[in-house]
């Protein structure tokens, strides 16, 4: 082997060829698991997509850096399952681009936060966490309640997500702006379209408690209130595997 290397060193083209060969083995081993990813990610028939308002909320979650202190990944450990609920499955992040699993928990995990607290609680807590939890060190996000949500580009956000594999329909993309408004205004004409396009289980409420206004707070609370509710797979997998 050493003799072979000794000879190889003395042939420039041969050496380059072998470097490419060896490096591509490393690359192949990293990439190969992705060829069969469909076989390793669980199937969830009930998987739904994010509504435009939830996509906007998710973008705000990323913009404000929530992922730096909150994870969205319940690991397969007893104390995590005891505290947060069923452990996270790969399929739950199927439509997440990028995924927001996070790697640090200054605050608690948020993977199963949806419907754990009321909308009013989330709004008050984001406005000033210490109003509700005196020990909290989370920053106050007051501007969320003030700033009007930008909705004119939501169709393009959905189109971009469709380009990477999220199954949005043309109709959903075309109606993204009005669906975002309708989801936060249950009494409006636009609200019925949201149910029609995204299903009965969609939360349609005035998330920030301000009637008629669509704020960043509406979007972020709508997103937080459906965390863990894209599919029931994690709950059903746990019972199915236990049997």
């Amino acid at each position: 082997m050493f003799k072979f290397h000794y000879r190889l060193e003395r042939s420039a083209l041969g050496l380059v060829g072998f470097i490419i060969l060896v490096a591509s083995i490393g690359g192949f081993i990293e990439i190969a698991p992705l060829f069969t990813i469909d076989e390793t990610v669980e199937e969830a028939q009930d998987m739904r997509v994010y509504t435009p308002l939830e996509v906007a909320g998710r973008n705000i979650y990323i913009r404000e850096g929530c992922y730096a202190c909150h994870s969205q990944m319940i690991r397969t450990l007893r104390d995590e399952v005891d505290r947060y609920g069923p452990y996270s499955l790969a399929v739950e992040s199927q439509y997440d681009h990028p995924q927001l699993w996070g790697s640090k928990r200054t605050g608690p995990d948020l993977a199963r936060l949806g419907n754990k607290y009321s909308d009013a609680w989330h709004t008050a807590h984001l406005y000033n966490p210490r109003d509700l939890v005196p020990q909290s060190k989370m920053p106050a996000y007051r501007w969320l309640l003030r700033d009007q949500l930008r909705t004119d580009d939501l169709g393009q956000h959905l189109a971009a997500l469709r380009a990477v594999g999220v199954p949005y329909t043309d109709e959903q993309i075309a109606n993204a702006t009005q669906d975002a408004y309708g989801q936060a205004n249950p009494d409006s004409l636009e609200a019925s379209g949201v149910t029609e396009r995204y299903g009965e289980a969609t939360n349609i409420r005035s998330f920030d408690g301000q009637r008629g206004r669509l704020t960043d707070m509406d979007a972020l609370v709508a997103y937080l209130q459906m965390l863990g509710a894209l599919t029931d797979a994690a709950h059903t997998t746990e019972t199915a595997e236990a049997e």
């Binding site: 190969a32 698991p33 069969t36 076989e39 390793t40 397969t76 450990l77 007893r78 452990y87 595997e241």
Partner: peptide, 19 residues
């Protein structure tokens, strides 16, 4: 990784089962 599955290892370690 295999075509329809992956090699599960001789020890049969499985995080889901462990938890």
């Amino acid at each position: 990784p295999g075509v329809n599955d992956y090699f599960r290892g001789l020890l049969g370690a499985d995080q889901h089962q462990a938890v």
